[in-house]
């Protein structure tokens, strides 16, 4: 069977694969990958044997940190993050939910003080019985993670 690459191979950088279809652009925005000025290749609605369809993001010359990879776990827990050097995978991040997350998501509570003040948003993350909850450090409201990651 003939195999064609969906996206051109990367020499240096990071490949975020197995992103649920529809989340790819959100990942670009949250990690401000476009603002880096590096070449970013995005594949949307690609065929996936396991997922049906998926998104893929490749960014050149940037290695996603452990912390960023864990933030990714909040909305794309099955994504794979491979750091590439000289066309080889040099690191595969295993995504684990972070205990705390700073500055990525805005607090869904519109009356939370964090919106208008010179501070970054900050959530404590906790999983109870497969249900991931995020508690805002400021307003102390607890949200299911889906509500937090939808906002913004």
């Amino acid at each position: 069977m003939q195999y064609t690459r969906n996206v051109e191979a990367l020499k240096e950088g990071t490949v975020i694969d197995h992103i649920p279809a529809g989340q790819g652009l959100k990942i670009l925005r949250l990690f401000q990958l476009v603002e880096t000025g590096e070449r970013v290749t995005v594949g949307l609605n690609l065929q996936s044997r396991h997922m049906g369809s998926k998104d893929v993001v490749k960014v050149e010359n940037i290695a996603l940190t452990e912390e960023q990879a864990n933030e990714l776990a909040l909305f794309a827990p099955k994504a794979t993050v491979n750091v590439i050097s000289n066309f080889e995978v040099v690191k595969k991040h295993k995504l684990e939910l972070p205990e705390e997350i700073e500055g990525v998501f805005a607090c869904p509570n519109s009356n939370c003080i964090s919106h208008k003040e010179p501070v970054k948003s900050f959530f404590y993350v906790r999983t109870v019985k497969n249900d991931t909850k995020m508690k805002c450090k400021y307003c102390e409201k607890v949200f299911t993670k889906d509500i937090v990651v939808e906002v913004r």
């Binding site: 509570n109 009356n111 939370c112 003080i113 964090s114 003040e117 501070v119 805002c136 450090k137 400021y138 307003c139 102390e140 409201k141």
Partner: peptide, 13 residues
């Protein structure tokens, strides 16, 4: 006292 949630935590910082 402040009308917005989280104001005291922010102030403490």
């Amino acid at each position: 006292r402040h009308p917005q949630e989280g104001a005291a935590r922010l102030a403490s910082e």
